[in-house]
């Protein structure tokens, strides 16, 4: 298994590690049993993500996808952030090994969970679609309609 240089860079020098004390939205997905947990903190002003920070328990890919996900959503509107898929996170990292695709799904779900928390707090909740990953890493949960799975690569999981 080989990680791209970008994955290694984001793993060894992760961007936006930490917590936001007065976060407007916090989301946690994954579970320790699977070996991956991502917790994402968002600071949102006027519908724009002003800051994003994360804490992750997991492998190199889990840390790198968390780091990249926070980079991708900073400065974006909530709508734009919601459109960021696991595929976008993977592409920004120059790809992931097939067995690690689920890490990018977790990153997408962490964003979604944090945004949902923001909406819940602000009475903007529309649906309960994003409850975070509940299944124990069946590779890539696959219940969520927005995931763009790379089935040709991940089918061997």
């Amino acid at each position: 298994m080989m990680y791209s240089e970008k994955v290694m860079d984001h793993f060894l020098n992760p961007r936006n590690v930490g917590e936001i004390e007065d976060a407007d939205g916090v989301g946690q997905v994954g579970n320790a049993k699977c070996g991956d947990i991502m917790k994402m903190y968002l600071k949102i002003e006027d519908g724009i993500i002003k800051d994003a920070k994360f804490k992750t328990f997991g492998c190199g890919a889990a840390v790198a996808t968390s780091s990249m996900a926070t980079e991708l959503i900073k400065g974006k509107t909530i709508k734009e952030a919601e459109m960021i898929t696991n595929k976008a996170v993977m592409e920004a990292l120059d790809g992931l090994p097939p067995v690690k695709v689920h890490c990018s799904v977790l990153a997408e779900e962490a964003i979604a969970a944090a945004l949902q928390d923001y909406k819940r707090r602000n009475g903007l909740i529309e649906d309960d679609r994003y409850e975070g990953c509940q299944g124990c890493c069946g590779g890539c949960g696959a219940q969520d309609i927005r995931h763009e799975h790379l089935h040709d690569e991940s089918d061997d999981e």
Binding site: M8, L12, G35, F57, G58, C59, C137, E157
Partner: peptide, 29 residues
Amino acid sequence: FVEGESVLLMLDMKGIKASSGSACTSGSL
């Protein structure tokens, strides 16, 4: 509180070669 593959990768960056029992190094979950 930490995951084995992350430890291995960081050890590798320091020139230390070791092994782990974590899922992430075995290719399974």
